[in-house]
Design a binder for these strands. Structure first.
Ligand SMILES: NC(=O)c1ccc[n+]([C@@H]2O[C@H](COP(=O)([O-])OP(=O)(O)OC[C@H]3O[C@@H](n4cnc5c(N)ncnc54)[C@H](O)[C@@H]3O)[C@@H](O)[C@H]2O)c1
Ligand SMILES: NC(=O)c1ccc[n+]([C@@H]2O[C@H](COP(=O)([O-])OP(=O)(O)OC[C@H]3O[C@@H](n4cnc5c(N)ncnc54)[C@H](O)[C@@H]3O)[C@@H](O)[C@H]2O)c1
Lengths: 207, 207
DNA sequence: AAAATATTGTTAATTTAATCACAGTTTCAG
DNA sequence: CTGAAACTGTGATTAAATTAACAATATTTT
């Protein structure tokens, strides 16, 4: 019933490029053009689009606006989903600032921290609550997704509180793998790993 | 000659857990323990370790310290590699602060920006240079890796300047896919995509 | 010291993802 | 109107990654 993870990722990426095209006044795009933008192949693009059941006007390429809408039908929730950022340090602030106001079905509507100096502060219009109020605020604001940017040694504890509070999706930027119940979708991004990977391939290409 | 990307990633992640184990005084670890920490299987762990040609003392698990060293031999460059952060806005500052001082073979030794107010500022001991001096500084400091955190609309331009300057690895945090020559290793991380993916799977698990 | 147990290393099987190859359209040039 | 060119959509194929299965080995138990 649900699409392969990699396809979901690529669709999200395609959409961003398509929105860019729209701004530039481009109304149609060929599979090989999208492919080139995204470092993959025309077949891959067509296959991804096939997955979502969209078919283009033959020979003219894909209608940019239509494709954006179709991807939206797949990826977005009709009413949008509410998101919280947990841990308002350097990264948490950057993320919050960045996401707020992005046209999107994902609304950051609360942040959480434990440090008293941060509580009640407003970042880009979003208020910071004490972590102790997590469950209550998640429920009252119908928050379903959490972005975790707390220090590594608080991560496990925070993670279980999130599950407890009824969060359904977690994006973890901490460098420790979290543990959630399996009704919660977890995506982990580890920046150190990315950088070490780049370093590895730089190293091996040298020799 | 070089390992699969996913294996490299996992090795980097294993190492982090292993360092943690060491701190906790744990000297040996079983494949299934590592697997559990990293949401994968014991076979997967053993296979990854097989790739790097390490074999444990049978029946006792892997020697934590040895395994850390062996992973280091694979991932790290003997002398370390120098890294620059390009674009010292919210994200660039967070990343710089975070990485500096991490014991590691990856040293952030310069940052770059175009805004005059940021130039010559020092963040966590790292100086900010004007982008116009990129080529010169990259050469003089032997910088081989760049982390890109400039605004989306400058990304393409900056990317070609990086290639021109002789950078060999790029970690792109921008939401536009970059284009580099194929002697340059490129890793792109798109935070919006991650979040949209989480949202998609939250949505589909609902229905 | 034999049997039972726990764990690794690896071959083989399976699953998943990507690519090839090509028929089917539409457009265009002559 | 005909044939060549340019794309798409997809069945078939190949490649890559993961998982299953199990022999080999060390340890513990009896
Ligand atoms: N800064 C980066 O660029 C970067 C890069 C990679 C990974 N990370 C990871 O992101 C996390 C945060 O990094 P940072 O640089 O923003 O750190 P930071 O110290 O600046 O921020 C951490 C914030 O979390 C708050 N906090 C602590 N315990 C908490 C709890 N139990 N509940 C809620 N909030 C709590 C702190 O008060 C602080 O505001 C770390 O785990 C780090 O490993 C950061
Ligand atoms: N902040 C986040 O959490 C976040 C999340 C996802 C993606 N990103 C991406 O990261 C990038 C930066 O985000 P940010 O929030 O830090 O933005 P920002 O505006 O705070 O910072 C951008 C910095 O880049 C500098 N800059 C502009 N043009 C430059 C150039 N040509 N060369 C060098 N420096 C230049 C600016 O002076 C500024 O200091 C954006 O592309 C954004 O899409 C950020």
């Amino acid at each position: 019933m649900s699409l392969p993870e990699r396809t979901v990722e690529r669709l999200s990426e395609y959409r961003r490029s398509l929105l860019q095209c729209l701004e530039e006044g481009k109304t149609h795009i060929f599979s090989h053009e999208l492919a080139e933008l995204h470092h993959n192949t025309a077949v891959q693009v067509r296959r991804d689009i096939m997955f979502i059941g969209y078919t283009s006007m033959q020979r003219k390429g894909y209608d940019v606006r239509e494709l954006i809408d179709v991807i939206g039908d797949i990826l977005d929730s009709e009413k949008g989903l509410n998101v919280a950022v947990v841990g308002i340090g350097n990264l948490g602030r950057a993320v919050t600032t960045y996401f707020v106001g992005k046209r999107s079905k994902l609304n950051i509507i609360a942040t959480f921290d434990v440090e008293t100096t941060k509580i009640d502060r407003v970042i880009s219009g979003v208020k910071c609550y004490p972590l102790s109020r997590l469950k209550e605020v998640v429920a009252s604001h119908q928050i379903s997704i959490a972005i975790v940017t707390v220090p590594a040694d608080s991560a496990a504890e925070v993670s279980s509180q999130l599950v407890e509070a009824g969060i359904k999706g977690v994006l973890n930027f901490t460098t420790v793998p979290l543990d959630v119940t399996k009704d919660v979708y977890l995506d982990e991004y580890d920046m150190i790993t990315s950088l070490e990977k780049v370093a590895y391939f730089v190293k091996t290409s040298r020799s």
